[in-house]
Design a protein around this nucleic acid. Structure first.
Length: 239
DNA sequence: GCGACAG
DNA sequence: ATCTTGTCGC
């Protein structure tokens, strides 16, 4: 089974009342936010199955492809990977990224034979203008522990962490700590980690470091990013 | 009112 | 996210 060619349709995995406009999306966001769990530590880093998810688009042809890649956290070897293809159902609206990305991500996750103990997302969880970003939505919708690793500080601010790998600094919205800037490689720009669902911030940062032994971004996101791009290219190639 | 703004 | 060549470095 080649995950690039054996892809799953997005349709079935999406909740029946999934919003298609901004107003409805904000209402759904509020409903889901009420169900987030923030008082669990989450699975221990360094062992078990961890999934990375990512999405690639072709707005021109109205195609979206999501990838889910499961790694053995102890070895960072891939144990399973899936892709889902569908049509773009929501525009990019800052603060509502979950509604653009998650339908395809849910389909890819649902196609996995073995559910992971943790899902690492591209983007934010609790670090969000309304404290409920992409990773938090995915956690509530799947029930799985989730965390977000973003490449940019979004609207938040942070003090520069120390120069060595493992250094951290608070990511703040005013005086509130919404996440952490984590230096995953020496002298390299930090990544921005926040809690999604059923994971503590300390644990989320520990996982992020464990998953990033060589590059700035976690292996989970690197693998998922590469896979959804390849699958998108494959989908666009014939038609 | 205007700009900024994860991917 | 995506548009896009070569290039510097391990």
């Amino acid at each position: 089974m080649d995950p690039v060619t054996d892809t799953v349709p997005v349709t079935a995995a999406v909740p029946a009342d999934w919003p298609t406009n901004e107003a409805r999306a904000r209402a759904v966001q509020d409903e889901l936010r009420a169900r987030v769990v923030l008082d669990e530590d989450g699975p221990p880093p360094g062992r078990g199955l961890v999934a990375g998810v990512d999405v690639a688009y072709d707005d021109e042809r109205d195609v979206v492809v999501a990838a889910a890649v499961v790694l053995d956290a102890a070895t960072l070897e891939v144990t399973e990977q899936t892709t889902a293809v569908g049509r773009i159902s929501f525009p990019y609206v800052p603060g509502l990224l979950a509604f653009r990305e998650l339908p395809a991500v849910l389909a890819a996750l649902e196609a996995l034979a073995t559910p992971p103990a943790l899902v690492v997302c591209d983007g934010y969880g609790l670090a969000h203008p309304r404290r409920f970003g992409l990773a938090a939505h995915l956690g509530v919708l799947t029930g799985l522990p989730t965390l977000g690793v973003a490449k940019n500080p979004f609207t938040f601010s942070y003090e520069e962490p120390g120069a060595v790998r493992g250094s951290v600094a608070a990511l703040v919205d005013g005086s509130e700590e919404v996440g952490r800037a984590v230096r995953t490689q020496d002298r390299t720009k930090p990544v921005f980690v926040s809690v999604g669902h059923r994971v503590s911030l300390d644990n989320a940062c520990a996982h992020t470091l464990e998953l990033s032994p060589r590059y700035r971004l976690p292996e989970t996101t690197r693998r998922a990013d590469a896979l959804c791009r390849r699958a998108l290219a494959q989908v666009l190639a014939p038609g």
